[in-house]
């Protein structure tokens, strides 16, 4: 009897959860529809200047047109490729750099002030120099995407390395482990969660680097479309590029989040 009563309570609890989920979803839908609806109405009734702020239908039509003729797809692919490459290179180099810092206390001490300066410096300000050094093209833009996440990854991961409980190393050393063995079997694996959590931050940072890079120099990509649309006063194009960026940045973030969940499950 008591068991049945427990079941009823549990069912009620589950129903409550479901209801809450539904309410949250409905509100999310209302905000989305409301935003685009209001934008459309405001544009058609001239509350906002339709020339400046365009309208959802115009953006939609442009997107369809440019997607069918394929030009938008190539711009999107270029930006996606640059962002992914920048993200991966930035994260990996950051981890390698952090490992080098850990491997030599002296090297770490020597680099400390430079890391502080590089970290404090807004990396996008290096844009022109990178472009001059690497030439206007993919390489420079990928470098922008990478450089923006490299230093912060280095600092976060290195701090993580140093915060590993020294007793793990003590255990290993009591077996006569070398420093490299300590790193391989304790310091590095203990830090996988830290490294994985930098992924999510880095994916956002890489978008910033790549879009700014495309602003500065490029004849392709979504960042280029924004600047181009701005120059020729075609704000429908700017909005279309923005919407694509929002969609793909969100997808990438979600994918990284999935990978993160999977990695955490399989490495810890």
């Amino acid at each position: 009897m008591a068991n049945k009563g427990d079941h009823i309570l549990f069912d009620k609890h589950m129903q409550g959860l479901k209801r809450e989920k539904r309410i949250v979803f409905i509100w999310q839908a209302i905000i989305l529809v409301g935003f685009f609806g209001l934008w459309e109405i405001a544009s058609r009734t001239n509350w906002i200047d339709p020339l400046l702020f365009s309208s959802p239908t115009k953006v939609y039509n442009l997107l369809i047109e440019k997607l069918t003729d394929g030009s938008m797809i190539s711009h999107t692919l270029v930006t996606l490729f640059e962002t992914l490459a920048g993200f991966i290179i930035g994260t990996l180099l950051g981890i390698v750099l952090a490992s080098l810092l850990w491997s030599s206390a002296r090297f770490s001490k020597i680099s400390d002030p430079y890391l502080v300066i590089l970290n404090a410096m807004p990396k996008v300000a290096l844009g022109p120099i990178i472009i001059v050094a690497l030439g206007p093209g993919y390489i420079a833009i990928i470098a922008m995407g990478a450089i923006i996440s490299i230093i912060i990854t280095t600092i976060v991961v290195y701090t993580g390395f140093r915060e590993v409980d020294p007793n793990y190393e003590k255990v290993l050393k009591s077996f006569g482990a070398t420093r490299w063995q300590c790193f391989k079997s304790a310091v590095f694996p203990a830090n996988l969660p830290v490294m994985i959590s930098t992924l999510k931050v880095n994916v956002g940072l890489s978008w910033v680097g790549v879009i700014v890079g495309e602003f500065l120099v490029s004849s392709e990509g979504l960042g280029y479309l924004i600047v181009y649309g701005f120059q020729v006063f075609d704000f429908t194009l700017v909005m279309a590029a923005l919407i694509l960026i929002a969609i793909f940045a969100a997808i990438m973030y979600k994918v990284v989040e999935r990978i993160e969940g999977w990695l955490i499950k399989h490495t810890t």
């Binding site: 007793n167 793990y168 079997s185």
Partner: peptide
């Protein structure tokens, strides 16, 4: 003092 087994 503690076991310091590697959790992974």
């Amino acid at each position: 003092q503690q076991d310091y087994l590697f959790p992974w």
